[in-house]
Design a binder for these strands. Sequence first.
DNA 1: CGGGCCTTTGATTGGAATCAAACCAAGTGG
DNA 2: CCACTTGGTTTGATTCCAATCAAAGGCCCG
Lengths: 239, 239
Amino acid sequence: MFDTLIRKLSQAGGLTEADHKTLRQVSLRSRQVPARRDLTSEEDRPENVHLVLSGFVCRYKILPKGQRHITALMVPGDFCDLHVAILDEMDHSIGTMTSCTVVEISRATIHDLTANHPRIAHALWWATLVDEAVLREWLVCLAGREASKRMAHLFCELLLRLSVVGLVKDDSYTVPFTQIDLADMLGLTPVHVNRVVQHLRSENLIVLRRHHVQIPDKARLMTYCDFIPNYLHRRPRVK
Amino acid sequence: MFDTLIRKLSQAGGLTEADHKTLRQVSLRSRQVPARRDLTSEEDRPENVHLVLSGFVCRYKILPKGQRHITALMVPGDFCDLHVAILDEMDHSIGTMTSCTVVEISRATIHDLTANHPRIAHALWWATLVDEAVLREWLVCLAGREASKRMAHLFCELLLRLSVVGLVKDDSYTVPFTQIDLADMLGLTPVHVNRVVQHLRSENLIVLRRHHVQIPDKARLMTYCDFIPNYLHRRPRVK
DNA sequence: CGGGCCTTTGATTGGAATCAAACCAAGTGG
DNA sequence: CCACTTGGTTTGATTCCAATCAAAGGCCCG
């Protein structure tokens, strides 16, 4: 569990052995959370930051008309809500999509780390900037790509993000969300998501069945949706 | 010019008199930049972070098909690209929309501030988190609101953001961008932007003429687009 | 005063939403 | 172990918002 935290922050570069030691001493409580539960809700002032160890978590907002829009997906190794350590109030909610194991880190701990361990502070800042870069790509995707390329793009992104944490095997991974969840991520209706899925299937770009995707030819899928991975800011080794 | 920097960072709270002094000693070079110039381009590894003193700057990406999408707007008092101090490579470009005065702060300076002045580091982190919150709202807006509400929402946001820096008078401010720029922000075509503008005009929700907006009834405009300002994370005093 | 960019208007097309209903899989309880 | 329920997936028909194509005005600047 410590490894997950250290691995995550090491991606920012620049951590020393002493920093690793500091992180190992951080008191972490791991917790099991069922699917479809909120970890924190809008307007909360939560006391803990969460780090995902297993399962999928999403960040979402509810629009006035009641529809939900998912603005970010957190997979194992990701922080859910570093914001809460810095901002005064949540402007969105965070909920599990599957049953999850999460680690809670108190705001006090984050404050101590940022105040007294500049390289760790730097790494935490790095993590939020990468999140922002992903968010930016989602925005551009939503604005400028048609539905089927948007979905293909999402599957490409997940392929890379999940492979970093060892959750991809033979270009295939588990997508534990429903077509309704996909609709909420891509800004489409569930009906249209279904049609798009069928289209991608018919082109043999993805094989999606029972919460499991397999990508027959990832180069072709990436070309199809003009996927450029630079926004993920992965370290070279993960290439 | 120092005041702008200090005012910006003070919004995060927690800065001491000593921090102010530190910031005053930061070496700042202010520079005039013409309209429609890039400050930094994708794949650059720029040496300076920019802070806007006057004028409008935007963050944008170019899609494969050649269309531009603007992902963020920076107004006086905003940082353009704190990323460059932390991430290895730009994944987007930053360009002026008008003639601008910007201040350049070297990466080395930012690194020194974050390494040795924890409260300033905290404030910088805060600034990026607020940027992210705005980005998130843009995403939700794009996905879930129809064109005219999206545009109304943008005008509401600008009203608040510009009033913080004293650029609003009588619920009226300058919007120095063209309908083409608006289209690139809202994910619409220029033609449709024009029609939406006309619709908002006909409803008397905005008075837009010659790069200048006046809002006859801001409560009505906010109600119209369900504008909830919490995502801007303004300090109470600015209410 | 001419040229270029922006704005405006019109006609048409198309992608995705909406409405409606059937189908399917999985879990529940009698 | 099988009706029953529930949530998700699929299909079809229709509507509508916004894109596209095309061209005419305005405005500003050199």
